[in-house]
Design a protein around this nucleic acid. Sequence first.
DNA 1: GATGAATGAGGGTTCATTCAT
DNA 2: AATGAATGAACCCTCATTCAT
Lengths: 221, 221, 221, 221
Amino acid sequence: MTKTAIQPGARGTDSDNDTQDQPDTTKRRQILAGARSAFRAHGYDGASMEMVARTAGVSKGTLYVYFENKAALFRALILEERLDQAETFLQCDDMSGDIRDQLVNVAQRFLAKMMRPERLSTLRMVIGATEQFPEFGKLLYEAGPMKGIGRLAKVLDRRVASGDLTCPDTELAASHFIDLCGSSLLKRAMFVPGTEFTQAEIDRVVSSAVSVFLAAYGKKA
Amino acid sequence: MTKTAIQPGARGTDSDNDTQDQPDTTKRRQILAGARSAFRAHGYDGASMEMVARTAGVSKGTLYVYFENKAALFRALILEERLDQAETFLQCDDMSGDIRDQLVNVAQRFLAKMMRPERLSTLRMVIGATEQFPEFGKLLYEAGPMKGIGRLAKVLDRRVASGDLTCPDTELAASHFIDLCGSSLLKRAMFVPGTEFTQAEIDRVVSSAVSVFLAAYGKKA
Amino acid sequence: MTKTAIQPGARGTDSDNDTQDQPDTTKRRQILAGARSAFRAHGYDGASMEMVARTAGVSKGTLYVYFENKAALFRALILEERLDQAETFLQCDDMSGDIRDQLVNVAQRFLAKMMRPERLSTLRMVIGATEQFPEFGKLLYEAGPMKGIGRLAKVLDRRVASGDLTCPDTELAASHFIDLCGSSLLKRAMFVPGTEFTQAEIDRVVSSAVSVFLAAYGKKA
Amino acid sequence: MTKTAIQPGARGTDSDNDTQDQPDTTKRRQILAGARSAFRAHGYDGASMEMVARTAGVSKGTLYVYFENKAALFRALILEERLDQAETFLQCDDMSGDIRDQLVNVAQRFLAKMMRPERLSTLRMVIGATEQFPEFGKLLYEAGPMKGIGRLAKVLDRRVASGDLTCPDTELAASHFIDLCGSSLLKRAMFVPGTEFTQAEIDRVVSSAVSVFLAAYGKKA
DNA sequence: GATGAATGAGGGTTCATTCAT
DNA sequence: AATGAATGAACCCTCATTCAT
């Protein structure tokens, strides 16, 4: 009750850290890094605070200086992951030039990000904890897939406007594109950790995905 | 040599269940039901053996009469789920008649199964435990998606042979179809438990999925 | 309270078992044999009733048909061991002829019995349980060492009477003899299980023990 | 790599205890004291960690801060007992003056140590656990009886050199002396806890033991 | 009489958390 | 701010014992 776990070292926007000599976000980051590693590897319930502390290289007590409890630490980690997702999920800002090339480009970047073991681990971690922390799954879904779909939809909108695509619902089309890209790869990668795909396999999948997408939504010759 | 948790009352043959090879006792089923419920709700690490026992309506000690330890109980549960997956994932035995109608039919049945909360919980449970029990993720992947893709691919093969489809790689096409069906629904359902979709939404997604699929692989007029 | 664990199959003196077709002492013996093995190997607390049952080749429930509980089973075992001790500890009935030869003879037989691994295990088992079951240690002490000393004392009495020995207290002298026999062997054997002694070592110890004994108590030339 | 139960507050040097090489903390000692009491009273298997904790006046969890597990705690206790044994078992440094007086002196001190209830309990505890922890029995045997015999043998060597004794094998003679001292007392004390002997009894036993010893090994008049 | 299924108390151990330093 | 010692609740599992068959 008394304890409130006030974060040491003011944080918030980095801008006002200028005048502080050691804003000690360092330790907080360190802890989050340890937590990320531990939670990814063992899940929320499977990872112990001691593991987190050891991985982070701090004492167990220190964890509670920065985070009120295990759940709060997990939440902070999820919020970080959310930022990462929001930034990296389906970047497709500059869509111009030949549409097929551009789609292939987007797909390749998307899969490269998506298939990284850490990203997959994070997804497993969140999905595994979703029943206990429903908010976190939603958070990540909205920052990741949902945001990505939105971004791609806007791009598709422009292509529709320019006549490159014919598409009644660009949001759904965007969703189709993303799922076609991951088709035959993502499910396996999620369920079978350690699965590796060759670039050739990925190229084939990307190429097919784009072909299907364009067959459905492309300008009819 | 040591303790092996031999199933009590394990009978070699049970005259009236030809197709079933494992001699499940009533109590064993009861325990597995409790375990299913507990593990789905809290994950492998999050569920305690006492919760399982209470949910199953047996004493804690009884669990260990039927299963060597927690992991063995989980494994038994996964093996059951695998059977269920194998049976129900993408049933599409009788593909004849108009292809669009048939695809819609398959898609509807697939989504109906897939979107059931218990199925989603199971998937989350397995994905959450995959880092600790990699074999189980693989097991379910192969019994579920992989087997489903194979089944659908065979059906598509026939449609290709009959000229209804043009398709260089029916396995990949099957994968495409499945992912198109789940597009915009499944990810959200996985990440946001409790999400409900109206039949209208589902119909729209199915219709779009089939359209995209046929645009890509259907007989060119 | 209700349960009284009446031994099945009347027992008592074997004489009245003649008329019974299957006096079922068989199973009781079987259980005791299992218990002996299990308790020797792991001690009273270290051995579980399941181990006993498995070793005995009966079901756990059967143990409770013949013995009220674990302690009662242990007690029955101790009573058996007591009989064995009483019979075999320091047999020296026929002491005649050359005294040195006779003492060597007794000593050899004593050590042969004493150094057998099972006898040592039994002693460890009882000593280990003595703090919890003080009566049992006393029981075995009286049936073993104490009885042996008494037996030997009587023999020494005769030798004193015949002038072969000079001995103010034959009980103490008997005790001395026994301890001299075991000297340098028995303590080690008790503390270091698996210790093996060669016959040569034993011969030397016996010879020395007898020499010391006779130097102290023998007829002064 | 894994948990190692590093002693908290373990200090490399503690300025005011030169002779002590292990950095026992207060709490560690406290726990060991509790363990000693509990294990002595109930044996290794018979004593629970909760009993140990309660006896030591610490929480159960604290035990595991100082010792990796029950066996490690027991081992630490045995190592302590070993030190005690090594120090106190048959002290006989200054053997000079009349040999009979000296032997009586040594014998009295030996028995006084040996017959103390705690010492007897410790021996029972170790003997009871020897089948499970063979190393510990050996450890104590070597630090106690074996070392004592060695010490006494050296003293006897000097007496042989000075012509006070005639003795072909001083090690064996030392063993004889020790066993004669305990004769009629030690076995009973081991098997019957709570046995008390009067000083008169002890005096008589000691006197006899020395007499027998000198009759065998003393200078022949 | 003999069994094995079933139990709940208790065993050893880990854990999230607190607190004095 | 950072620690590590300390805790007690809870966890997984075992056990002596009971009871229906």
